[in-house]
Design a binder for these strands. Structure first.
Lengths: 350, 350
DNA sequence: CTGATTATTGTACACGTTTGCATCTCCATA
DNA sequence: TATGGAGATGCAAACGTGTACAATAATCAG
């Protein structure tokens, strides 16, 4: 017969939360406990009769397979950790929305770990992920110590770094081709006939954002044009306001600005409009990066680069679901999105 | 002696992921397995000597307590589910950022479940949460069937509904006082001297958004003023553009518009500026709701209502961490944030 | 030095699953 | 009818932990 006694040794039964177990369903349906398990395991062998009985009893009792126990047994948690800071930033939020959506569609469960604040928290985040035997950790901001990464690997966890390209063996490093985008931005400003070109960047920029700046400056050097560099503040709209104000306040006011981020670009445009009465693209050409939702708002209509989000996620999922993925670095082209913040080409193409 | 043999019955050892267990650490440190467990259990009794040995060995071997197993045993997962749709929407993103942050600080782990798309997905989300024995589910959008909620309760899960106030026993229902806010909005427009007052709302609005509309209209009725209602589209910036265009295109163009959402308000302001050459607050007064980041962008400078996010989250956490919380409905005042999208008071206060 | 108290360690069981193997039933084929 | 084979079911062993209880070692009061 079934052993119905729970908590044999513990007197205070009430302290434990009573859950509906497979055994309860089994007893209710008059079948064995394994039959219940098999009913909920795809591909397992159960007769239609017992399956029906089990499903009915499960429905009545409100039974759900305990995935903690199941994960423990099969050593596959189905959980993927998303590690990110400043989640409420437009581009980041979009990325997380898309990622969680796609992970879900792939049958995975997303664990969100917010690392705003100290950089140190990436470490804690990964430790937490390891504790929960996460199948993979997708890091959207920051990067872990190599030693910590090894701990991840030794626990069978996969590591994806988005927007990082440092040397990181064993992981997938993926992101847009920031340098190329910077280059394209410069060409576009030149073709628009801009004479005094500037760059607006945050002083606390991420690696990938600095890359954009480098690409832009390198292209400028190649073309033999001087670039006015204004670098200050955080990667935010407010910083854009300040940067824009500083730039437009100069005697030699620039007529074309590459902003390393859409948020900064929005700030620059607003500075131009609200504080100097200048309009894009007539008085000033502005290019951003990220293609956040606000970029297509009518007040900005910002020419920018679209992050290759879909492709990044495609690759992410594919890489995470292969058995023994090998270290890989993927750089995807960022699509140039023409809107109306850049003067129409005055200089014909060569 | 220790039993080092794993997978006694399974030949293909390699198929299972090899993990570092407490037993491995115990063997390495020359102590018993329970000592390892005790080392990582706060308040357990271990001598400093063994604790030190255990910690050292754990460090070397890269051991982390398996929280799946631990949760299973103690029937406390430490996981809280966040159920939300349209995560990349400014207000939603901010809410999630703050919630995940605070949950983390409280030692909880957040599981993000994206329910964009069908409404049906709230059900799937909760079923998933139950499977993982989530301690609580915080629902930011949508609401579950009562029967499903019962299943949640019977599995010891707590339920929080944010921005819902339907009759839902056993759960915490919390959100801003939308009606009162609508009322305040009307008063503010009247005091600004607006003569032709309008309301712009989405046709697919949530319950709480509809409440704002109701509060506004009720107050208008009380004051004996007519309100022009434009209701169409989704709750988005684009809808705001359309709504604004439709309103401002009328013969009897309104001079004061309450938008049930900041996103809509931004759209309305842009419609006014970009399509009609009208400026706030001189030609048009606009009030929004949510106090999203864009509301304080210089291009909008939007007078709006701040969601009582902090208080909501405070209450959430407090409620979720009490043993047997009783059903509760909490309505918190939304703070009116004065910026510069509403004409300065022309009508003196009575 | 003895008995009592306390701090530490060990033993064994439970948490709720999945799965290899063995058993059993049933039906078709030779 | 005997022989296989397929399909369903049961048994028992894991997965990696926490904890009540017992046993042992250490400390202390008298």
């Amino acid at each position: 017969m079934y052993n119905n006694q729970r908590n044999l040794m513990s007197e205070k039964v009430s302290s434990r939360k009573q859950q509906v177990r497979a055994e309860d369903v089994a007893r209710h349906a008059g079948v064995s406990r394994v039959s219940v398990s098999r009913t909920f395991t795809p591909g397992a062998s159960v007769s239609d009769a017992t399956r029906a009985k089990v499903l009915k009893s499960a429905e009545i009792l409100g039974y759900r397979v305990n995935r903690l126990a199941s994960s423990l047994n099969r050593s596959e948690s189905g959980i993927v950790a998303l590690v990110a800071a400043e989640i409420d930033t437009p581009h980041r939020a979009a990325m997380i929305a898309e990622l969680s959506e796609r992970l879900q569609a792939a049958g995975k469960v997303t664990m969100l770990i917010n690392t705003s604040g100290y950089e140190e928290r990436v470490k804690d985040a990964l430790l937490q992920a390891i504790s929960f035997r996460t199948e993979a950790a997708i890091i959207l901001s920051g990067a872990p110590d190599p030693s910590l990464a090894d701990t991840c690997f030794s626990n069978g966890m996969k590591l994806v770094l988005i927007n990082r390209e440092e040397d990181f063996p064993g992981s997938l490093q993926i992101g847009p081709d920031n340098r190329a985008a910077g280059k394209t931005a410069l060409k576009a400003l030149l073709r628009a006939g801009c004479k005094r070109i500037a760059l607006a960047n945050s002083a606390n920029a991420t690696w990938s954002i600095v890359e954009r700046q480098k690409g832009f400056l390198a292209a400028a050097e190649d073309a033999g044009v001087d670039v006015l560099c204004e670098v200050d503040g955080f990667t935010s709209y407010q910083a854009g306001l300040e940067l824009g104000t500083a730039l437009l306040d100069r005697e030699d006011r620039p007529d074309g600005i590459f902003c390393t981020t859409d948020l900064i670009a929005c700030g620059v445009i607003d500075a131009a409009r609200q504080r100097f009465g200048l309009r894009t693209p007539d008085d000033l050409s502005v290019i951003g990066f990220d293609n956040i939702q606000q970029a297509e708002w009518e007040g900005y209509d910002l020419t920018t680069f679209a992050q290759p989000t879909d492709q990044i996620i495609d690759k992410c999922l594919e890489w995470c679901t292969t058995e023994q993925p090998s270290s890989e670095t993927v750089k995807l082209p960022a699509k140039f999105v023409w809107r109306n913040s850049v003067q129409k080409a005055r200089v014909p193409m060569k």
